[in-house]
Design a protein around this nucleic acid. Sequence first.
DNA 1: CGGTATTTTGAAAGCGCTCAACGGTCGTGG
DNA 2: CCACGACCGTTGAGCGCTTTCAAAATACCG
Lengths: 250, 250
Amino acid sequence: MLSTATNAHSAFAAMATMKPQLATLDELFASVPRETLDVGEGLFWQGDAAQHIFEVTEGVLRIFKIIGDGRRVITGFLYAGDMVGLSLKDVYLYSAEAVTPVKVRRLTKRAFIEAVEHSPELRPQLFALMCDEMAAAQDQMVLLSRKSAEERVCSFLMLIARRMQGGRPMARTVQLPMSRQDMADYLGLTIETVSRTITKLIARGVISPNGRHAFDLAKPGKLLALCGDGDSYDDIGDNAVKTRQAVWPH
Amino acid sequence: MLSTATNAHSAFAAMATMKPQLATLDELFASVPRETLDVGEGLFWQGDAAQHIFEVTEGVLRIFKIIGDGRRVITGFLYAGDMVGLSLKDVYLYSAEAVTPVKVRRLTKRAFIEAVEHSPELRPQLFALMCDEMAAAQDQMVLLSRKSAEERVCSFLMLIARRMQGGRPMARTVQLPMSRQDMADYLGLTIETVSRTITKLIARGVISPNGRHAFDLAKPGKLLALCGDGDSYDDIGDNAVKTRQAVWPH
DNA sequence: CGGTATTTTGAAAGCGCTCAACGGTCGTGG
DNA sequence: CCACGACCGTTGAGCGCTTTCAAAATACCG
């Protein structure tokens, strides 16, 4: 568990004397050698002693929990720039495996926490990171709780599309490196339902396959409308423009 | 929970901040007058400018999101001691309403963040809080993604039972102040399914009604086993003892 | 090119949902 | 104290979406 004070003074001294202020969380990991993971290889397992924080440098990682009888729930996919292992429990509460070949850098939890604790630059960044994660988790609860299979798949496509483009214009093509089983376990569906739903979206011309693990977004406006997020869109001609007509109660 | 060393450190911290040390997040709110909410009254709404952080002092609050066509997802119930509004977005991403009469205290987000930022005591507490929230969110994803109706209801009963007793011996009686509709929207079910599932649990003697919004846990061991969390339990005679036989992959 | 894993497709079943009616409880007011 | 009504919870019947079980098709890899 995290005991912040043990070495607080020495860590502070070290930071003050040896290092310039770190501007970004990323720089924290800059000096650490990269490790590589093959496809399917695990980074750590649910129940392992939680000693490190990792930063994904390259590739895609899946984070998942398994309950007794083998049911698997993928709680997230991590891309370059994402961090994993952030928790104060002394064991990991989930497992992490490589979806694609992955490169990561690791820091001991203590080193990470002390560095953040003594950097006024880093603290807000960590805070922001955790807030974003929490917001994403809540969106996922909405998806799992109330969305239909089609809405889930469309939401997933949009999520990945947005993530890949860092938010900008929106990718024409979405890469889905994970298997259908991974998608199913992330979306709370079965592999068959995911497959059928995708087939239907293709038949309707909303997306079109581009290899088995990539899709072209033929009608991005339509796709957006099918996410079930309740905003309304001008869908004429599929050059859809978001009209941001939020619908709250009261 | 998190054992921080308070001592060697605090002298230095006090000098640095020129403020009396706050030992707990709770004390941050100590000087603020309480506000009260009637049953059903809203604290803030999804989309409102997010200017305050709240601490629940008394009662139960529900946190929920609504998507376009009226579907509601309750992402959590908050009890005395819990905090709400923690986010860096400039609008709230969810709404908060009183399930029971509620008392809260508020701090502006800025005041809160600055206080935490200047207190080495408070920072780890906030970090711990957010980590716990994240862990709870992931458990909820598991529930929503892969658990049956019965498992969901049992998990909910256990969750509330544990929360009420602060983790100790386990309450004989569980108070459920929220409506069946609230439970349904939290568990990703309909009100009818929740009702039917509870009826079945009563029929099987797992729980027994104690007023409409409370239940006695007649067979806590059985209840635990029905949560679908995959541990195994000795259920003979219902003086069940947890045998902690975790099941990870590999 | 053969063998394996993954994905797709088909048919049937099941769990939870929808629609509908009934019952119970509580507060109000006569 | 009881009658009434509104709200909430329960129960029932039937349906539909997703799952399950099974098999074929396709991609992947040595």
